Simulated scan of single mutants.
Amino acid sequence: MVVIPVELAGRSYEVRVAGGLLANIAQEARAFIRKPHVCIVADANARAHWGDSLARSLSSADIEARWYDVAPGEASKSWDSLARLTDWLLGQGVERGDHVFALGGGVVGDLTGFACAILKRGCGFVQLPTTLLAQVDSSVGGKTAINTAAGKNLIGAFHQPSLVLADLDALGTLPARELRAGYAEVLKYGVLGDRAFFDWLEQSGSTVVGLARAESEHAVAASIAAKARIVAEDERETSGARALLNLGHTFGHALEAETGFSDRLLHGEGVALGMVLAARYSARRGTIALADAERVTRAVDAAGLPSEIAALSLDCDGRTLAEHMLHDKKMDAGTLPFILLRAIGDAYLAHDVELADVAAFLDEQLQAH
């Protein structure tokens, strides 16, 4: 087992990475269960795979599992879903000292975390991420949110979990496409701040996606450790350090918005394509070598992730995509900082990017290849 501490002032917690964590939940999370029952908010697919294992482990410790199922997909991150969940948690008598467990991917983690942030002005929660994307990204760091008609993740709160259990066994239940989408976030950590990790992924990425245990554990643990360091430095994204974690997301969210936040483009696929676009745009501005931008593209291609906008068959122009970016949470005083690259492993926050120039660049990408 690899244990990564997330060091925050007075609120530090552990992320544990290993196999068998969910099947041993009663022992792993016993410190966060203070009643003879625990509320578990679960993605319906995750519960189908892991519900019996969790229930058996809890039952062996005389703890009852009380389940709340959430439909898979971004549509569950809505006002209506939040209202139904908070009403259910109140009906279960959840108190401020209790912990709610979130079993599933980023959707369940975000929804549950936000519900716990506002329930009785804040109760605890434990993250049980079952997707690669959630294990290396959304389950760590305390960002919780729901979506609205105006955009993705625009209503939310910073609310840190008390424990994260990243069970590597859960990755074996994922569809191949979803596993690849999660790998995009792993690759992101190398591109934004760790060239040696990127070099390793160039050689070992196929074994990570193939779920070789040693390589998967290293990739997940290294990714979490990288995020933990940045979160500890800039928990609420005020200094600019944490904003670097959004590499690929500004372009990616625009593409997700244009595809209706649907399964036409999974979030991780949007991030992968967004990283390629960020690298190419950096090369266009002369801040990164074209050869490095091409390496990023090849790494994304090698993982079976999209690297060309043309593959999405979008019926729009660059201006339309750029306008989606106006709803980005990073907007500040009417300007939008972009996370760009000086080199692989050296991302920075650019405050001088004109959206008109981004629109022109995107027009070039839409017409290319």
Rank of each mutant, 00 (worst) to 15 (best):
P306Q: 07
P306V: 06
P306T: 05
P306R: 09
P306M: 06
S307Q: 05
E308F: 13
E308I: 12
I309T: 04
I309V: 14
I309F: 01
I309Q: 03
A310Y: 03
A310E: 05
A310V: 13
A310Q: 11
A311S: 13
A311C: 08
L312F: 14
L312T: 11
L312G: 11
S313A: 15
S313P: 01
L314V: 04
D315R: 01
D315Y: 00
D315E: 14
C316V: 10
D317M: 00
G318K: 02
G318H: 05
G318E: 10
R319S: 14
R319V: 15
R319H: 14
T320P: 04
L321F: 12
A322M: 01
A322Q: 01
A322K: 00
E323C: 09
E323Y: 12
H324N: 13
H324Q: 13
H324K: 07
M325P: 04
M325Y: 11
L326Q: 13
L326A: 11
H327V: 13
D328I: 03
K329D: 05
K329H: 05
K330F: 04
M331S: 07
M331N: 09
M331R: 14
M331I: 14
M331V: 14
D332V: 15
A333C: 11
A333N: 13
A333Q: 14
A333T: 07
G334N: 08
G334V: 10
T335N: 06
T335G: 01
T335I: 13
T335R: 11
L336C: 04
L336I: 08
F338D: 13
F338L: 09
F338N: 12
F338Y: 11
F338E: 12
I339L: 06
L340A: 09
R342N: 11
R342W: 02
R342C: 03
R342H: 15
R342G: 10
A343N: 11
A343Y: 03
A343K: 12
I344A: 01
I344E: 00
I344M: 02
G345V: 06
G345L: 08
G345K: 06
G345A: 06
G345P: 07
D346K: 04
D346F: 00
A347V: 08
A347C: 07
Y348T: 03
Y348A: 02
Y348N: 05
L349T: 15
L349C: 15
L349S: 15
L349I: 15
A350M: 05
A350I: 06
A350S: 08
H351R: 14
H351C: 08
D352R: 00
V353K: 05
E354F: 14
E354C: 11
L355S: 07
A356V: 12
A356Q: 10
A356G: 13
A356D: 15
D357S: 10
D357P: 00
D357V: 07
D357C: 02
V358Y: 12
V358T: 09
V358K: 12
A359H: 08
A360Y: 14
F361D: 02
L362P: 02
L362G: 01
L362S: 01
L362M: 12
